[in-house]
Design a protein around this nucleic acid. Sequence first.
DNA 1: GTCTATAGTATGATAGAC
DNA 2: GTCTATCATACTATAGAC
Lengths: 188, 188
Amino acid sequence: MRGKVKSSRETAVAAALECFRRFGYEGASLNLLSEATGLGRSSLYHYFPEGKEEIALAAAELVEQRFNELVIGPLQGPEPPMVRLGKAISGLDQFYNGGRDACLIDIFSIGDTATALPGRVKGIAFAVIEAFEKLSADANKRAATNPRASAVRAIVELEGALVLTRATGDRTIFADTLSRLPYILSVS
Amino acid sequence: MRGKVKSSRETAVAAALECFRRFGYEGASLNLLSEATGLGRSSLYHYFPEGKEEIALAAAELVEQRFNELVIGPLQGPEPPMVRLGKAISGLDQFYNGGRDACLIDIFSIGDTATALPGRVKGIAFAVIEAFEKLSADANKRAATNPRASAVRAIVELEGALVLTRATGDRTIFADTLSRLPYILSVS
DNA sequence: GTCTATAGTATGATAGAC
DNA sequence: GTCTATCATACTATAGAC
């Protein structure tokens, strides 16, 4: 029985994640979360007894899992660096929906949001930086590049592109940044 | 009497701006705004009859004014491009408090925030892009650079650096981005 | 201009029937 | 597991005394 279709909780977390990305932590009210998940406020408390903070934490965990599948995993594959980066770029485009969806690193670092949340997304940020760093190091084994600085700059440009794409509505900004990643990380 | 010191409204807007930058639009409740401004909820409605949205709009206008003074004005000065950019970099460092304070372009583009707000900050974003673009064009009059793309990339890196600095607490990210601006804009 | 008081609504969260 | 009903609190906003 279990495993055949996604459980209510799983689908609920995915819907809640959309909510948080669109409206922010404070903006995603239980009413919105209830509508988005189709669960009813009380049912939400059945799946997430600790309330809103637990929903947000589950959303952050889902992001971590998806990022591992779509970005970090491909970056660590056995193929040549450029192939790995190509897969990661596709994953990033998918994860951020072509620049339309916000990043929790941005969203969950605003305000006095609950204690566990900023730490969780901070961890994801560092994991991505490390993965980019290793890729850049692999691609430049005897060159005098600075993989760490390049990796940080890659995340900086991705986060900035998402902000500016959201603010201006111009999705070419995000697309251009994706296409710049090989250059930023010195992977060719 | 009036004019000697800043009016209550002016100081209130400055305090409210701090609130919005720290907690976001939804997170900055009237209680927080009342505490921060020292005005009392009712007094806030005396200065801003339309309520919270008017306060946020006034904050956005203050940002526009400060940005003109600290960044856009210096960029348009008569000095050589590198001197102008140096002043703008100092202005950016001051405006963003060394990376500690968020950008309204980010904050006010989250959620279903009131109608006038996203448009207002979008305007500021385009104004900065244009100013950077002209500076880069001035500095590369017969070179084959792309001033528009460079200007967009400068804002992208600034916004991204602010996000990542806020999320990680590492202010060197913002400082490094400031020091990269001459390179990004091909101004030397 | 600032205050107290308060309206009316939305919030996060709980209890208990089914 | 989902429902209705409800709690206490916080929210934005208004009215009116001073």
